[in-house]
Design a protein around this nucleic acid. Structure first.
Length: 394
DNA sequence: GTAGGGGTAATG
DNA sequence: CATTACCCCTAC
């Protein structure tokens, strides 16, 4: 797998707000293999994302145990965090306790669950000396086994709220692990590019001031070029810009600033580029920093006064549009430039059914309902759900 | 984020 | 014309 593929994959995997991207599908589409060398960050991102997705869907199941075990393997022998151990322990407990719906241990599937999870699965962990086998886990094992025979213990455990604790530990684990992973590669590269180009701009402008006398020629060095590299990378970063601000938990203030600037920068490019000018923008940027080259001005939008070309001509800085006048008067009705209206699409019976089920389960938490059914409700916003529900009640 | 009022455009 | 989906605004 090429480096760029990895970066893109990693980026998409980390976009937790994009329900259409499944890490599993993505990795298989990119022909990602177990043997693919040094992709541990990619694998980790993928596992974390899977855990995160299942939490969003409200699933704390045996699949989560698989993921936590995989995560342990990816740490390759380094010491596990407490939250990892606790998350595993409480998830295992939850997977068992959820089968305690009958009033007695002798009915239902509880005994099977103890066998499957605690004897087999955790038995394997014990054999290989896994760090996931904590004291807490062993205590729980004893209790849960006791509950198979002792109805009193069974009832006591049955009434405890294990799920909540499991979710808390899983969230804690995710938070820690995302923080450890830091920014994703694509973003780091973007940051480096931006910082580099900023330095270059500073240098360039300083040179401009001084260079006026010693070099009266038109063709000045193009240090100020902000180098958007590959088209592919461009594309990715443009799509990411919008989501970036919201989802990345590890962003510190500096990163946020860079992300914002990056977004402005890319939006500006998007605005300026029609398909035909795309190539022009990509090419001159191979003329990077090392050999100072004469300015090959891009000649956008037919600017005729070529006198002050140099840095400012080639750089693609965001030209902020003239601000729209504020709508001060409450009588003013129209918005400045409203987004075009979406095409009207009637609700399918499936969508309505999903909405009904959603309201039953989550109440009027439109966002939760949408998150729980990302595919079916892909084309509906939370407001749409609200409006539709209102219609249904009429 | 959500509720709710109310407007507008598409559709039958 | 009624219904439906979508939009906008304001308040909480």
């Amino acid at each position: 797998m090429k480096v760029m593929d990895k970066w893109v994959a990693e980026f998409f995997i980390r976009c937790q707000k994009n329900p259409r991207v499944s890490p599993t599908n993505l990795l298989s589409a990119l022909k990602f293999r177990e043997s693919a060398g040094d992709c541990s960050y990619l694998k980790k991102s993928s596992v974390l994302r899977e855990i995160s997705d299942s939490l969003i869907r409200g699933n704390v199941a045996e699949g989560t145990l698989d993921l936590l075990e995989t995560l342990e393997k990816l740490h390759r022998g380094s010491v596990l965090t407490e939250s990892h151990k606790f998350a595993y322990c409480w998830t295992a407990v939850e997977c068992t306790v959820r089968l305690m719906w009958p009033l007695s241990a002798s009915e239902g599937l509880y005994g099977d669950a103890v066998e499957r999870i605690w004897t087999k699965r955790i038995g394997v962990l014990k054999e290989r000396g896994s760090g996931l086998v904590s004291e807490e886990l062993l205590k729980w094992e004893a209790d849960l086994r006791k509950a198979v025979e002792d109805d009193e213990v069974y009832k006591r455990i049955r009434e405890s709220n294990v799920r909540y604790t499991a979710v808390c530990f899983l969230n804690q684990l995710l938070k820690e692990q995302w923080a450890v992973l830091g920014s994703c590669s694509l973003e780091s590269v973007a940051q480096r590019m931006l910082l580099k180009s900023r330095k270059a701009v500073d240098k360039g402008t300083r040179r401009l001031d001084e260079g006026e006398k010693e070099n009266g020629e038109d063709n000045r060095d193009v240090h100020g070029v902000e180098c958007p590299q590959h088209a592919a990378e461009e594309e990715e970063e443009r799509t990411m810009g919008v989501q970036e601000q919201e989802h990345e938990p590890s962003l510190d203030e500096g990163d946020k600033m860079v992300a914002r600037e990056l977004k402005d920068f890319l939006l500006e490019i998007q605005r300026q580029m029609d398909p035909s000018s795309t190539r022009q923008l990509q090419e001159p940027n191979n003329a990077n920093i090392t050999p100072p080259q004469p300015s090959r001005s891009v000649n956008r939008t037919g600017t005729s006064g070529q006198q002050q070309d140099s840095a400012s001509e080639n750089r693609v800085r965001p030209h902020l549009p003239t601000p729209e006048p504020l709508n001060v008067s409450p009588l003013k009705k129209k918005r400045a430039n409203p987004a075009p209206r979406r095409i009207k699409k009637f609700w399918t019976p499936e969508e309505v059914a999903v909405l009904r089920e959603g309201v039953k389960e989550y109440g009027k938490s439109w966002k939760e309902i949408k998150n729980a059914n990302p595919e079916v409700l892909a084309e509906r916003t939370e407001v749409d759900l609200k409006d539709k529900w209102r219609n249904l009640l009429r």
